[in-house]
Amino acid sequence: MAAWLERNVPRILLAPSFLAVLVFVYGFIAWTAWVSMTRSRLLPKYEIEGFIQYERLFAAPRWDTAMNNLFIFGALFIVVSMLLGLLLAILLDQKIRTEGALRTIYLYPMALSMIVTGTAWKWIMNPGLGIEAMVRGWGFDEFAFDWVIDPDMAIYAIVVAAVWQASGFVMALFLAGLRSVDEEIIRAARVDGIPTWSIYSAIIIPSMAPIFLSAFIVLAHLAIKSFDLVIALTGGGPGYATDLPATYMYAMAFSRGDIGQAASSAMVMMTVVFAIVVPYLYSELRAKRG
């Protein structure tokens, strides 16, 4: 018995976590998937009815807006954060004496709650008292910056705040990547007289492909899950103008009492995330074993 126990301690210790993951991740996903196929409203029902919830979902204009927003927000957020992060990383890589301080400044937003970020930017972009008022105060009376209350522009306000928060993180990733390139290769290139910009474009950046991928995955993942920022910055408004799938799901689940819609929208979100993340993780895990 003692020997059996001794041999099996590792298994016994891992078992609770394994069970927890099985139940609270995979079991719950299954539950949500199940409920998304029912007519659940305020309370879950368990009779499978097919894809009615998905039909309702795809017919709902609000969901349409949410998906559109996700696309605009996600694309802009990812592209701008990556470009900005890469630019900052390359600039910081030029043996800047104040690199440590600058890096600290660029990265601190990542330590903040998105609610704080949203609150701050909501104030900064406040049309009456924020940037708009400030610039008008400088004499540009016609200046307008009212994105947060403009249904067509509000989503871009969210992009600004999100980029502000996450681009420093991308910078840190890229900087680590730039630094991990073999010093000797760079020396060899310089001995060969290759100009700086082509050292970057032909040698360093291509060798960072895995980091680009990682950054993309993380940002895409953040974009799809982003919820707090929208809530704090625009509350999904004006109207539903800045709804994202995450806020749609939340509204259905906790204020509209439409569990079926909440479940089906969550499943769509998960599908999108997994379509991006699964191939990535799969290849990562395989690469590690092989």
Binding site: V9, P10, R11, L14, S17, F18, V21, L22, F24, V25, Y26, G27, F28, I29, W31, T32, V35, P44, H221, I224, K225, F227, P245, A246, M249, Y250, A253, I259, A262, A263, S265, A266, M267, M269, M270, V273, F274, V277, V278, L281, L285, R289
Partner: peptide, 28 residues
């Protein structure tokens, strides 16, 4: 203390890190 299946468990946990939490909100 690798044992048979430990890697599978780890992979399952890792995938679990990436789910959008919306999908577990209702059952939780």
């Amino acid at each position: 203390w690798k044992f048979r299946g430990a890697n599978l468990i780890f992979s399952l946990m890792l995938f679990g890190c990436f789910i959008p939490f919306q999908v577990v909100l209702l059952p939780m």
